[in-house]
């Protein structure tokens, strides 16, 4: 699979972050690793844009963060999705599905139908 455009990744970073946090709390590096794993190695958001996205979601109230000792070792800043984050995730998923369907139909043309 070819390299995914950075602008496309940048716009979907909040959706990717909220998706991996649906199952539980993770810290920053774990979030990046989880996204890479779930995408099958197809892409991974730039770590330089991951942390701004995490902090922006926290500022909006979609995530809450606490410092605590991890299961595997030293303390890390763990992020957890809030109820507001759940609603935001549902909204982003709906937008993405609509967008993806539209793009697929447009790109596919006669052959894509």
């Amino acid at each position: 699979m070819g390299r995914i455009g950075s602008q496309l990744l940048k716009g979907t970073t909040p959706l990717l972050v909220l998706s991996v946090l649906r199952d539980g709390e993770l810290y920053g590096y774990e979030i990046a690793q989880r996204i890479r794993e779930r995408s099958g190695g197809a892409f991974a958001p730039s770590e330089g844009s991951l942390y701004p996205a995490l902090h922006a979601l926290e500022a909006e109230g979609a995530l809450s963060a606490t410092w605590r000792e991890g299961d595997k070792g030293p303390r890390r800043r763990y992020y957890r999705m809030t109820s507001a984050g759940g609603a935001l995730l549902a909204e982003h998923e709906a937008q993405w599905n609509s967008f993806a369907l539209g793009v697929t139909r447009t790109v596919g043309g006669e052959a894509g139908r």
Binding site: E47, G48, P52, A53, H55, A56, A59
Partner: peptide, 16 residues
């Protein structure tokens, strides 16, 4: 992978 520190700081300022 973290990128330019000044650019990262700018994004963090906006994110907060």
């Amino acid at each position: 992978r973290l990128g330019n520190p000044a650019e990262l700081a700018r994004q963090m300022n906006a994110a907060h």
